[in-house]
Design a binder for these strands. Structure first.
Lengths: 151, 151
DNA sequence: CACGCTGATGTTATATTATAACATTAAGCG
DNA sequence: CGCTTAATGTTATAATATAACATCAGCGTG
């Protein structure tokens, strides 16, 4: 994993911008931008495709040493909670997010071949639905298929 | 798991109907309705909530004996392929389906408390989207929240 | 019926993803 | 400084899923 890949136009977020946003968020909210958190976010931001937790684990060094699973999962959880990354359920993998949106409804186009993920925006899929007492908290749509470069 | 539960109005599919449909499907398509397949489908059909593979494993006996993981996963795969069950990605769990629909786009209302799952139908979420070369194969929306009885 | 083909299951082992539990360290604050 | 709290380090293990190969059952054919 993490090999150079030009699929999807080589799209990836810019680690610097995302880290800057993260720094800003942390100082504004009394959170700490620690080494594991920073490394995990940078790794995801550099990748244009979804990475599994153990891909991240292999990719990052914290103070020059390989981390252990809980360290990675804690950082993942932190960024998930604060909307800096998303979990792609159908891949058990994670992507960074540089969109500003409430995280209540998102839509991902997931390439089953190269695992690249594009985040799309539409109207909430709940609009047209008879919820009949169901109280929604979060909607996520995943469309699996082949990206432009893979089909 | 599998305890009696009256949440969501005790909704569950009717194993007999679903098995009848499955029998019909198999004979029409040259597939075999073997013991593991039948038991797995019945178990899911009886449950009104999503079951993990290992919940199913604990629940079924094949010729009076506990099965092993590959047996369960093969049956799950079989029914997934043929649209008799769905995988709820956010739970790593499975539900039976007695709807007739192309499996190209489905929407689930998932209760995070009791794990009951309601299948809903709306227009495809892809309609409003600029796919820009992405070739979609399957869309699934999962809305996590609290069901009528749990909130 | 015996044979051989095919698809399904049985079995063993292991890969992959994720978390529990407790010890230690670091940051912020009076 | 010394306390408190949040975060990380560490060890172990849970939960989910699959690879690989052996065996068996159904079925058409000679």
């Amino acid at each position: 994993m993490l090999e150079k890949n030009t699929c999807c136009g080589g799209h990836s977020h810019t680690p610097k911008n995302l880290i800057a946003k993260a720094e800003e968020f942390c100082s504004a909210n009394g959170q700490r931008l620690t080494a594991p958190r920073a490394e995990v976010l940078k790794t995801l931001a550099r990748s244009h495709k979804a990475l599994g937790a153990y891909d991240i684990l292999e990719a990052v060094l914290i103070d020059g040493k390989k981390a252990k699973p809980p360290t990675i999962y804690r950082a993942i959880e932190f960024w998930l909670e604060h909307g800096f990354i998303h979990r792609i359920e159908s891949l058990n993998a994670y992507v960074s997010c540089d969109h500003d949106h409430d995280t209540a409804g998102v839509h991902f186009l997931v390439c089953e071949n190269c695992k690249c993920v594009r985040e799309a925006h539409t109207a909430s899929p709940l609009k047209a639905l008879d919820l009949d007492g169901f109280e929604p908290k979060h909607s996520q749509t995943e469309t699996v298929g082949l990206c432009k470069d893979c089909h």
